[in-house]
Amino acid sequence: MEMLQITNLKKRFGDKEVLKGVTLAVPEGGVFGFIGKNGAGKTTTMKTVLGLLKPDEGTILVADEPVVYGQTATNRYIGYLPDVPEFYDFMTPSEYLTFCGEITGMDKKDIVTRREELLELVGLSGEKHRIKGFSRGMKQRLGIAQALLGRPKLLICDEPTSALDPVGRKEILDILQAVKEQTTVLFSTHILSDVERICTDIAFLHDGVVCMQGKLSEIKSGKRTEEYRIETEREADARTLAEKFSECALSGERQLLFREGKATIFELMRFLADKEIEIAGVERMEPSLESLFMEVVKK
């Protein structure tokens, strides 16, 4: 089953069309990475899914139920962490989670067990201070806890790692990794290494449309262009190659990056053999999201 199905979603602000027909399917289970540059429209897409923004066109289904703007019943399936979560900072984390449980109508006992469980998970148990003095990382972790409180089927996190330092980012990624057993995770980001670390599925949002989506492993293996790192014995040879092949780019004094284009690796090899160029090493590169992303963005 698809946990979330967006079809032909369009949204404009004034005369600026931000979403030009986004179609996206998030399968149940797993961690879905929603990738796009700053200003691509990730937040806009997520807010429409939550019924916080009114779409100009298109339909959104959450667990096969249509999303309605304003009073959004489908939100009962969703746990949401906004890009900059703001809490009632006069409360302690424990009080805040209790408040969240009460407004969603959870019963008292359940609130207590769930609260303690989640505070433990995000490393805030025993935190008796008010939220007022919390760091970005702590707020982000509390944000995940409040999002998970009602045992949502779908956890939506808007750039949960963007504003954090490496340690904070790792903490968040570990938490997301840990909860994927309980819920489907959809998170947006522009940090590709985060995606490579934990995502099972991805979608690229660019120019108002989703220009690529699918299983991370399939997308990576189905990538057409191959990349090789080539090291020559002599500096001059490296330069010759870079001049001869437009697909070659110098990446060091004697190092080249070869991305297959018009010329394939075989042609390069033939050239090397003909000219008797001495090679120190040839390595096929693991396709990286980075290069994939650049490819998509260039098109």
Binding site: L52, E86, I103
Partner: peptide, 10 residues
């Protein structure tokens, strides 16, 4: 933006 969380919780 404190209301957003409460309202998206239903």
């Amino acid at each position: 933006g404190t209301l957003v969380l409460a309202l998206t919780k239903g």
